[in-house]
Computed example of a mutant assay.
Amino acid sequence: MAEIKLAAETRTEFGKGAARRIRRESKVPAVVYGHGADPVHITLPGHELHLALRQANVLLSLDIDGKTQLAIPKAVQRDAIKGFLEHVDLLLVRQGEKVNVDIYVHTEGELAPGGNLLEHVLNALPVEAEATHIPESVTVSIAGLEAGATILAKDIPLPAGTSLNVDGETVVLQVLAAQAEEAPAEGAEGEGEVAAEA
């Protein structure tokens, strides 16, 4: 997992008006916290931050007042309509430190023939991983699975140094039987004609 370097500026103005001014300058207000230190309010370059957040569980190397600090995103607020970044909460981390994160679950292969459906009970798997080696995702084979099959959290192979942060018996994926198309209820068509005439 690569580090992405961002230059941060500390800020002393708060509130909606200040946040709007920051965003007009193509920057994003953010707060950095963790390790028992007081939260530090910063601004980050909007375009670079937007690109960085495309990576799941990205590790950010922040230059804050000449000091480099590592952080991971914990909460990202976006505009509900336009989707632009409004605010980001960042958690300070250290080399070798363990953190709790969610990693995406991807699937590969095809289910057994029969039109059955795959349900993602969990789209992301809660795990504990080293802060500087957080996996972006895990991949699970569903090849040949039939209706009624389930994949539990404990069945998913995890990278070295990563452990489950959820009960191993938790269902992550399950295969649902194909639904037969329901025939129209008897007499429904006639009832509709009567209603139309009325």
Rank of each mutant, 00 (worst) to 15 (best):
A75F: 10
V175H: 13
V172R: 03
E86P: 03
G148D: 06
A188M: 06
A149P: 08
G148E: 01
V194D: 12
L122A: 06
E108M: 05
A160L: 11
A196K: 10
N165F: 14
A149F: 14
A153V: 08
A183N: 10
L122G: 05
V138Y: 12
A149E: 13
P184T: 03
A129Q: 08
L176C: 09
L152P: 09
G96V: 07
E193F: 14
E136K: 05
E182R: 10
I103H: 09
D167H: 10
L176A: 12
E86N: 07
A185K: 13
A180R: 08
N116L: 01
G192S: 09
E146D: 13
D155W: 11
T150H: 12
V138C: 01
V171R: 02
E191A: 15
P113R: 04
A124K: 06
L92I: 07
K154H: 13
E182T: 09
G192D: 10
E189H: 14
D79I: 09
L111P: 08
A198L: 15
E136N: 04
V171Q: 04
V88W: 08
V194Q: 08
G83Q: 04
V171T: 15
Q174D: 07
E108K: 10
P73T: 04
L85P: 05
I142C: 06
A112C: 04
Y104K: 13
G114M: 00
V101W: 15
I134C: 02
A177L: 06
L111E: 09
Q77E: 06
N100G: 12
V76T: 08
I72H: 11
Q174M: 07
T150M: 12
Y104H: 12
A195C: 01
A143E: 15
Q95N: 04
L90S: 12
A112S: 06
T150F: 14
E197Y: 15
T170V: 10
A129P: 07
G168M: 05
N123T: 08
K74L: 00
R94D: 12
R78V: 14
D155L: 07
L118D: 11
Y104V: 14
G187E: 06
A75M: 06
A147G: 13
